[in-house]
Every structure is written in C-alpha cells, then in structure tokens.
C-alpha cells in the first residue's frame, strides 16, 4: 500500500498520458474513419476500392505490428517524430477502419425505404445522405463507437511497449522497483484503467437504451 501512495504522482502521470493518447487518437480515428466510410459509400468506384483495401489491410494487421512500424521502422526510414507522435499515429491508423466499419454498418442498418422515400421526394445523393440517412445512422452507431473508445483505452497499453511512458510502462517499472508489492501495484494500475472503461461502458448501455430507434 505504501508503494502506491508514495508513487501516486507517477501513477497520475501515467494516467494523464493514457488519457492524452485516448483523446487525441480517438478524435483522429473518428475523423479518419468518417472520411473512409464516406469514401466507401461514394458513387466513385475507385474511392470505394481504395477504402475497402485500406479497411481490410489495417483491420487484419496486429496493433503491435502497426506500432512497430510507426515507432521503429519510420525512424529507420528517416523520420524524426517523437515516440508519442508515433504512438498516436499508430493508434489512430489502427482504430480508424473499425470506426469506418461501424459507421457503414449503421448506414446499412437504416431501412432501404428511408433512402427510397428521400430519393422519391427528389433529394439528391448529398441531401439524402446528410439529411435522412446519416442522422439515423449516427444514432444507431453511438454505442458501437463508445465500445471502440473502450477498446482504444485498453489498446493504449500497447504503446507502453514502444517507449511511451503511460500506465502500462509505469506498472512495469514500479513492479520491478517494488518486488514486495507487485500485486498491489498491478491492481492499482488496473483500477486506473477501469476508471475509464467502466463509466464508458455504462454510458454506452444507457445511450443504447435511450437512442434506440423505435420501429
């Protein structure tokens, strides 16, 4: 217990770094994922193909390999980015195809009748997507998107393996330094992660009930 209280500042530093990774790469992934999803449904075949290729490739590559590329191969190829930026880029890239797929499945979940009604009223592609389809799709995908953020929270721990000092790195270092309090330290670190993931999970469940489109 002493080991935890004495090292509380380090825990908080690590927690702050985890939060930073989560917020920045979460926002990046949402933006990038939306762009990819838009490309996927656009009426231009080459954009569709590119988006599908991007999604399938990144979704089937382990996060470790993506981060390895960003943190070790890129500097080797001549980039001089700091490791934090590398980790953020890696996490953003890895999460974005999942966001794109979630959005697309939301769009697919809107009944075809809605699109047909919009089209038969004379709305064009852009109008029917932005006014009719997207507002309904977005409500449906909020819970899956929050689940993605929960997964991202847990995935930030992998960045700890690539020279970013966040909660996982703190756990490793403190556990090595305090051999007699390993269990306490690891439980404390787990608690810090749960502080993020459990409220998000509750939020997701509550929104799911509130936002569900009644049909």
């Amino acid at each position: 217990m002493n080991a935890i209280i004495e090292n509380l500042p380090r825990f908080l530093d690590g927690f702050g770094m985890t939060l930073l990774l989560l917020v920045v790469s979460g926002a990046g992934a949402l933006v990038l994922g939306t762009v990819v999803a838009a490309m996927r449904i656009a009426p231009v075949p080459s954009l569709n193909g590119f988006a599908a290729f991007y999604t399938e490739t990144l979704r089937n590559t382990p996060l470790t390999l993506v981060l390895f590329f960003c943190a070790i191969i890129l500097p080797y190829l001549g980039s001089t980015l700091p490791y934090l930026a590398c980790a953020i880029i890696g996490l953003t890239l890895y999460t974005s195809p999942f966001v794109a797929e979630a959005l697309r499945s939301g769009i697919n979940g809107v009944p075809v009748g809605q699109a047909e009604a919009a089209r038969s009223l004379g709305l064009g592609f852009r109008q029917s997507v932005t006014l009719i389809i997207f507002p309904q799709a977005f409500r449906m995908v909020i819970p899956p998107l929050i689940n993605l953020l929960i997964a991202l929270t847990k995935n930030t721990s992998v960045a700890g393996g690539f020279f970013v000092v966040e909660l996982f790195t703190v756990a490793k270092e403190l556990a090595n330094a305090n051999g007699n309090a390993v269990i306490a330290i690891l439980l404390a670190i787990a608690a810090f992660y749960l502080v993020i993931t459990i409220p998000l999970g509750i939020l997701s469940a509550r929104l799911e009930r509130r936002l569900a489109v009644q049909r």
Partner: peptide, 25 residues
Amino acid sequence: LTGDAGIGGSSVMAGASDPADATTE
C-alpha cells in the same frame, strides 16, 4: 434483415449485426 442490398451498396456484410464490429479488442 433487409438482405445484402443495404444502402451502403456492394456490401459484403450488411446489417448492424456485423460480427466484425464487436471485435476491436
């Protein structure tokens, strides 16, 4: 389910019950 011809067009997997969505972790 509405079948394969979802709004997103040319989809391999239509429907919100897409198994791949639950699997980011």
